[in-house]
Design a protein around this nucleic acid. Structure first.
Lengths: 239, 239
DNA sequence: CCTCTTTATAGTCGTGGTGACTATTAAAAG
DNA sequence: CTTTTAATAGTCACCACGACTATAAAGAGG
């Protein structure tokens, strides 16, 4: 920051890009928009947009999230800064520095393709088409980051509605990690972590399930997981 | 990123800020520069500078690091992106978006106060003066991030010279975490993690120590720690 | 109605990582 | 030669966790 007056300095366009994730029917989904203009017209991309003159990146991300999802209430939504992408040439038109965010959504209201995009849709992560710009890299980074967050924080509940079963919570882990977990051990671990989940007042499960009805829980007050809930198999050793 | 042509967009000055950390005599130190100009003239700040037109933030950070430390060789140095700070008003003069990095240095060559800064110095983290801008916040975030990295990665060796003793490696953990560790248990854990450290060819320790000479090790090929090396006491529970 | 299937819940057992220890060894300092 | 300091080696108990088995409570199908 020193040398402010001595050096010439360039100005840059600054954008935010959002990796908006949800779990739908046991599969990780990501919110994508179809570009209506060049470059990459017709390609899918992460939602996002330019920073306004008096906005922080976090504020801009929250505004864009509200615009793209059509949700009025984006306060309290789980939003986290991922990383800033600044390679020259990542946008063919001009220099653009982009601050990327991850957003974790509990349910999947179909987005209205608002504003500039041709359309906006939830697409399965594993069946996502090639993305515009470096958004494929951003999306992969986002999944890795969220996967690590699940190990050490209680962020998994951000994917779940207000009341949820332990089976639904386990599906979040399995969808993000791409691996299966032992149901009984998962249950033991979650319930043994104080403040992770709390029993919900009204007892049994949502209607229409097949097996024994599951108890409902809601997110507890804790934010960190001690000890962590490590994903299996990253390479041989595990605790 | 859509809506590029429809919307007016602002341009921003973009800088990088560096939290350059080292461990010196068992204490965490940070590289600070004394500002020579307004605003915050005479205050200490993190080193950093403006992004050049054809640089990525990583490239700029590495260039600034070389300039500030006077080290010719900054390739292979442990540099990690921390977070981007974009609050309006964080610089009183104008809108500045800053990408912050952490840098882990093995030894502490006294920096030459190069270029614009009045002087550059290593200062103990715990005795750091109030910093200019939001650099105090950035520095605190950096310590927390590095502390978490030590738990899950082999980054601690980045603080150590090419050959080091397990006692020195332990001092890194204790300096960053601000807590003491059991020597025998630390030793057992490090040696049981394949690829963390390897015995160095030339046997015994550096000259002039007091107790039994320690074996020398060098950094191994591993980057991640499975299972992690959790810091004690974050709140009651621990593994 | 009875059985099969499905899912939730409960419990058991063995292993391994770890915290808290106690020796023992090898150097310098007094 | 003794004391001090630090490195190294080893022990022991606890507990978290992976891998299991058993039971309970619902729907589906004949």
């Amino acid at each position: 920051m020193q040398g402010y007056d001595k050096h010439a300095y360039e100005l840059f366009a600054v954008t935010v890009d959002l990796a908006v994730l949800t779990v739908r029917e046991g599969a990780l989904h990501v919110l994508l928009v179809e570009r209506g203009q060049q470059p990459y017209a017709g390609r899918w991309a992460l939602p996002g947009g330019f920073l306004l003159p008096d906005e922080s990146a976090e504020t801009a991300a929250r505004r864009e999230l509200a615009e793209e999802t059509g949700l009025g209430d984006v306060t309290g939504l789980h939003l986290g800064q991922l990383r800033t992408y600044s390679e020259p040439g990542r946008d063919p038109r001009m220099r653009v520095v982009s601050v990327a965010f991850t957003a974790l959504l509990p349910d999947a209201p179909e987005p209205r393709g608002g504003g500039d995009a041709a359309q906006a849709r939830w697409l399965p992560y594993d069946a996502a088409p090639p993305l515009a710009f470096d958004h494929g890299l951003i999306l992969a980074d986002a999944r890795e980051r969220v996967g690590a967050q699940l190990e050490h924080t209680c962020a998994a509940t951000a994917f779940c509605p207000a009341a949820f079963t332990l089976g639904e919570l386990q599906q979040v882990y399995e969808a993000v990690w791409g691996s299966t977990l032992d149901r009984a051990n998962f249950r033991r671990k979650v319930l043994a972590t104080p403040g992770f989940v709390e029993p919900a007042a009204g007892a049994a499960r949502l209607t229409g399930g097949r097996g024994k009805p599951a108890a409902l829980y809601r997110a507890g007050g804790a934010t960190t997981l001690h000890p962590p809930l490590l994903r299996p198999s990253r390479e041989g050793r595990s605790a």
